[in-house]
Simulated scan of single mutants.
Amino acid sequence: MHTMWKGSISFGLVNIPIKMFAATEDKDIRFRYLHKKCHTPIKYKKVCETCDEQVTENDIVKGFEYEPGHFVIITDEDFEAAKTQVQSRTIDIIDFVNLKEIDPIYFHKSYYLSPQETGGKAYSLLRKAMGDTGKIAIAKITIRNKQTLAALRVYNNILVLESIFYPDEVREVSLVPGLPESNDVAEKELDIATQLIDNLTTEFDPSKYTDDYRIALRNIIEQKISGQEVQVAPEIPQKNVIDLMEALQASIKETEKEKKTTKKKEVAKKKKTTTKKKTSAS
């Protein structure tokens, strides 16, 4: 696993040297754009429309557009001056809070943290203390010249840093058009909807969720590589449900069937496991 950042956690007067790793990865299937005629990869050139000439990286500067068509140029020296105003190599813990107090809308990206050679003892101390108290830490960290708010927590016996949005980066819900102003609903419909939620409630098991589109696309790619014809499944006709109550009742029936099927599978699985154990014991 590639180390993407090195620094330390500032915990009161304690300094814990750590290494940071990306905890997640993008599994999207990526494509190159090709010329339809000859399948040559397309390259994109940077061109100045005013000078009508191609420009290189050395000819490009960064500008902030403070109003349409008007820019201020920001130099490398300006960026360095801004960097000196923040602690660029420290995860600076500000507060400890309860995880349930943070709405998931604030979470952005996850990173694993491990101790550097001399940080094992202090790392274990912070991990144990946070685990025992059930608290998470709110901290600030600078990654790639951007100061980020973060939540530090314990996950599967490792410290995880979650970058989180600042409050002014989360848009107001009042900006969303078409929201119903009241929660007035029919009592009978609410009862059935609640029952439907109960039928679909289970323990969270992340292994049961898969990206069906990515799997299907990967299969098509593999088939094309091996020279096979791609078989496309016929489109499933959509049921035209007119009444909300009808839709809820139909959903209840479907979920009850699924629950019975799931229970049968679990019972069969337990019987199979028990038989194996008996056979091994004998």
Rank of each mutant, 00 (worst) to 15 (best):
M1S: 03
H2G: 08
T3D: 03
I9Y: 00
V14A: 10
V14D: 09
N15W: 00
M20T: 02
D28Q: 07
R30A: 06
K36V: 13
C38M: 04
P41Q: 05
I42S: 09
C48W: 06
E53P: 03
D78G: 02
F79P: 03
K83I: 02
S88Q: 11
S88G: 07
N98M: 10
I102Q: 10
I102M: 13
D103P: 07
I105T: 01
Y106F: 13
H108V: 05
K109C: 05
Y111F: 01
L113T: 02
S114F: 07
E117Q: 14
E117Y: 10
T118C: 01
T118S: 06
G119R: 06
G120R: 11
K121G: 03
A122W: 12
L125S: 08
R127Y: 03
K128R: 08
M130F: 04
G131P: 03
G134C: 07
I136N: 00
I141H: 00
I143R: 06
T148R: 11
A151G: 09
R153I: 02
V154E: 06
E162T: 06
S163E: 15
I164E: 05
F165Y: 13
F165R: 15
E169M: 05
V173N: 14
G178M: 11
G178D: 15
P180E: 06
E181S: 06
S182Q: 12
V185K: 10
A186F: 03
K188V: 02
K188I: 01
I192W: 14
I192C: 04
I197A: 09
E203V: 15
F204I: 14
P206M: 13
S207P: 00
K208H: 01
K208V: 11
Y213T: 08
R214W: 14
A216S: 09
L217K: 00
R218V: 15
N219W: 05
I220M: 14
I221Q: 08
E222G: 10
Q223H: 15
S226D: 12
S226T: 07
I236T: 11
P237G: 03
Q238M: 14
N240F: 12
V241I: 15
V241H: 09
L244Y: 15
L244E: 11
E246F: 02
L248D: 05
Q249F: 10
Q249D: 09
T255P: 02
K257C: 04
K257F: 12
T261Y: 08
V267A: 13
T274D: 13
K278H: 06
